[in-house]
Amino acid sequence: MSTPPLPQPVPCVQAQPNWQRVDFISDLHLDAREPATFDAWALHMAHTPADALFILGDLFEVWVGDDTHDPFALQCIAVLKATAQRIPVYFMCGNRDFLVGNALLNATSMQALSDPTVLDFGSADRANPTRILLSHGDALCLDDHDYLAFRAQVRQPDWQTAFLAKPLADRQAYARNVRNTSEARKQSHLNNPNSTGYADVDTQAAIAWLIAADAQVLLHGHTHKPAVHDLGQGLSRWVLSDWHADAKPPRLETLSWLRQKAQSPTRGLCRLPLSAV
Rank of each mutant, 00 (worst) to 15 (best):
T3C: 15
P4S: 05
P5R: 06
P7Y: 04
Q8H: 12
Q8G: 00
S26H: 02
D27L: 12
L28R: 10
L30G: 05
D39C: 02
A40L: 07
W41Q: 02
A42L: 08
A42K: 08
A42V: 04
L43S: 13
M45H: 09
A46V: 03
E61V: 02
D70K: 06
P71E: 06
P71M: 04
A78S: 14
A82I: 05
T83S: 15
T83C: 15
R86S: 06
I87N: 06
F98I: 00
F98L: 08
L99A: 10
A103T: 15
L105W: 05
A107P: 02
A107F: 07
T108I: 14
S109R: 14
A112I: 03
L113H: 06
L113K: 10
F121V: 08
R126W: 01
R126E: 09
R126N: 03
A127F: 01
A127G: 15
R131P: 08
D138M: 09
D143I: 00
Y147C: 04
Y147V: 04
V154Y: 11
Q160I: 07
A162W: 01
F163Y: 14
K166S: 03
D170V: 08
Y174R: 12
R176T: 12
R176L: 13
T181Y: 01
E183C: 01
R185V: 00
Q187W: 13
S188W: 00
H189D: 01
S195G: 10
A199V: 05
Q204P: 00
A208T: 15
W209V: 07
L210R: 04
I211W: 00
L219W: 14
V228W: 03
D230Q: 12
L235V: 06
S236Q: 15
V239F: 11
A247K: 09
P250H: 11
R251W: 00
T254H: 13
T254Y: 09
L258G: 00
A262N: 14
R267N: 06
G268H: 01
A276E: 14
